[in-house]
Design a protein around this nucleic acid. Structure first.
Length: 549
RNA sequence: GCGUCUGUAGCUCAAUUGGAUAGAGCGUCGGACUUCGGAUCCGAAGGUUGUGGGUUCGAAUCCCACCAGAUGCGCCA
């Protein structure tokens, strides 16, 4: 039951009745700017006006006359060409009973038709603690993944681990320096190495495990040990931090696996067979210029024959295809945007479907501390870690805060403010609405009132009740928009609107002291419906829906 | 230089993708029922949507130019 589509069905029927078929343009059914104007409105007349070269007011007059015949609407008005709908009371009743009878899956819609979708996010070099910027990406990926599950997709969440390559070697050497430091031997951390103090902790682990056997000794074997130890510890810490946010991955995919399974060679072979590969100056190149307006790129380096990051990434995505996903959605920071056209080109070159890969970007997080913006650099060891943020603000607020901002917007995070007044975060507003409803039901029980489902629903005709119900009816639509646009903030915004409508209703009408028994039951139903939407919405956001707070 | 994203109230963000009088929270000011939770509700102040043009019934949204910020243009990842 998705209210906007139902209204559109009514409009389409009316169009047919007045002889208008094959309308190709999309028209909109939405909520008018003022509640008094109607429950919903549509711009259909303007769309038709352009097409039929007729005055929109005349068209909406014709249409409103036709639509009034339907029992779906109490009345249909036309104001300045807009069609404004007032739903019949029985539609509101149906909404309420529908929600109450589907507590576990109200809002689900089938956009995906069971497609298997992989989400890749929070893929980082395991070279240091996660920062708040990573937190944004992790929450975003997790929430969009959840939304995809609600919209008829089968979702797998995966993290890619860059556990090979130059950065890791630098990390190993930096760790070794810290390890020697513990043993009283002093070396310089290499240029571009990792100076953050978190490596001291890791060094202690190595010291515990291996004793002083690597003191003042350095060779390839030792380097490998330090690489492994460093990556393991960093990964554990990262996963631990994410777990604190209730973010869990189905798969952590190691870069090393690409080589172990020969994926790089297989991918290169595939590209070669399609004619996109050539050799020059001892390196192997990808003919990007055949596909897009960009220079060719190196896949295998000339001096050490090691694949570039780009090459690995192509191989990784080809492997995703071989693993059988219908679609893959990557979530990257916006600094990767230059990577997108090349990746899309490689998808085409490999002969994969055009829509196989979708890359979603998000802007950065700036941290404001003591009134100043803090630049974050893992390498220099200057950052505000995600763990600190969770310590200070708590899981629910962190998740909500990151979900509530449009991914395209740079987020200025004022840490001091977030710590000082947690009310800054609207998550409490939504949670409070939920807790309040729970408390009504507790109070009802205390008074010996037995809640009766579906009773008295036709008494729900006050404006506050209708506005709340209308909002509840939009839940599926809100999930749909969030899904199609990859914007979790549409969901948080929606929940805030629902909460606002509820608080308003609560303050102007009494539930347990209603004028009649039937009306009280009706309002209890309305409360339950609201509770269902709030708790479903919050659970998709991964935020707790408390019974009391 | 070329490309991408952003610019909205003092601050943090919206605006159902071209709709009607641009909305919330925080902050400021003023109010609320001895009754279901005052983490709430109601009201006020606060805006030339970065600037200037254009497109049309209608623009924060689309097009052009400029200004400002972020970011990318490696045999780095």
């Amino acid at each position: 039951m998705e209210i906007i589509s139902l209204i559109k069905e009514q409009i389409d029927d009316a169009l047919k009745n007045i002889g208008i078929t094959n309308l190709s343009e999309e028209y909109v059914v939405e909520i008018p700017p003022q509640d008094e104007l109607g429950d919903f409105s549509s711009n259909i007349s303007f769309i038709l006006a352009k097409k039929l070269k007729k005055n929109p007011k005349i068209i909406s007059q014709e249409l409103s006359k036709e639509l009034t015949k339907s029992s779906f609407f109490e009345k249909v008005e036309n104001v300045n060409g807009f069609l404004n709908f007032f739903l019949s009371p029985n539609v509101y009743q149906r909404i309420c009973s529908h929600i109450v009878s589907h507590p576990r899956n109200y809002g689900k819609i089938d956009i995906g038709k069971g497609k298997i979708i992989q989400f890749e996010f929070a893929s980082v070099n395991p070279t240091g603690p996660l920062t708040v910027a990573h937190g944004r990406q992790a929450v975003m990926g997790d929430v969009i993944g959840n939304i995809y599950e609600q919209t008829g997709h089968i979702v797998q969440k995966e993290m890619y681990l860059n556990d090979a390559g130059r950065q890791i070697k630098l990390l190993a050497r930096s760790l070794w320096v810290r390890y020697n430091e513990l043993l009283g031997s002093h070396y310089e951390i290499p240029e571009d190495g990792y100076v953050g103090e978190y490596l001291i902790e890791t060094a202690k682990i190595v010291l515990n495990k291996y004793g002083n056997s690597f003191k003042d000794k350095w060779n390839e074997e030792i380097e490998n040990i330090f690489m492994e130890e460093a990556v393991e510890d960093m990964l554990n810490k990262m996963l631990h931090t994410l777990k604190r946010l209730d973010i869990n991955f189905d798969v952590v995919f190691s870069e090393k696996l690409l080589f172990k399974n020969n994926i790089v060679d297989i991918t290169l072979g595939q590209l070669k067979s399609k004619g996109y590969i050539y050799e020059k100056d001892g390196a192997i190149w990808f003919k990007v210029s055949d596909l897009i307006d960009e220079n060719d790129k190196v896949l295998i380096r000339s001096n050490d024959k090691i694949p570039t990051y780009f090459c690995d990434d192509i191989a990784y995505h080809y492997y995703k295809y071989l693993r059988g996903f219908d679609q893959v959605i990557d979530i990257f920071g916006s600094d990767h945007h230059g990577h997108i056209p090349r990746m899309m080109a490689s998808i085409k070159a490999l002969g994969l479907p055009d829509d196989f890969l979708k890359i979603v970007l998000h802007q950065f997080v700036n941290i404001k501390k003591d009134g100043e913006l803090v630049r974050m650099s893992t390498r220099k060891g200057e950052f505000y870690t995600l763990d600190e943020l969770i310590d200070n603000v708590g899981k629910d607020a962190v998740r909500y805060f990151f979900a509530m901002v449009d991914p395209d917007t740079t987020l200025n995070f004022d840490v001091d403010l977030a710590i000082k007044k947690s009310n800054e975060n609207p998550v409490y507003y939504v949670q409070y609405a939920h807790a309040r409803i729970c408390s009504i039901f507790k109070e009802a029980e205390k008074r010996g009132i037995k809640y009766e489902r579906f009773l008295g629903l036709n008494d729900l005709n006050k404006n506050e009740e209708k506005m709340l119900l209308r909002e509840l009816a939009l839940f599926p639509n809100s999930l749909k928009n969030a899904c199609l646009q990859f914007k979790p903030n549409l969901l948080t915004q929606y929940l805030e609107k629902v909460s606002s409508r509820f608080h308003h209703f609560y303050n102007s009408l009494s539930v347990l002291n209603a004028e009649s028994y039937e009306l009280m039951q009706a309002r209890l139903n309305l409360c339950e419906a609201t509770k269902i939407v709030l708790s479903r919405g919050l659970s998709i956001l991964g935020v707790n829906a408390p019974e009391s707070m």
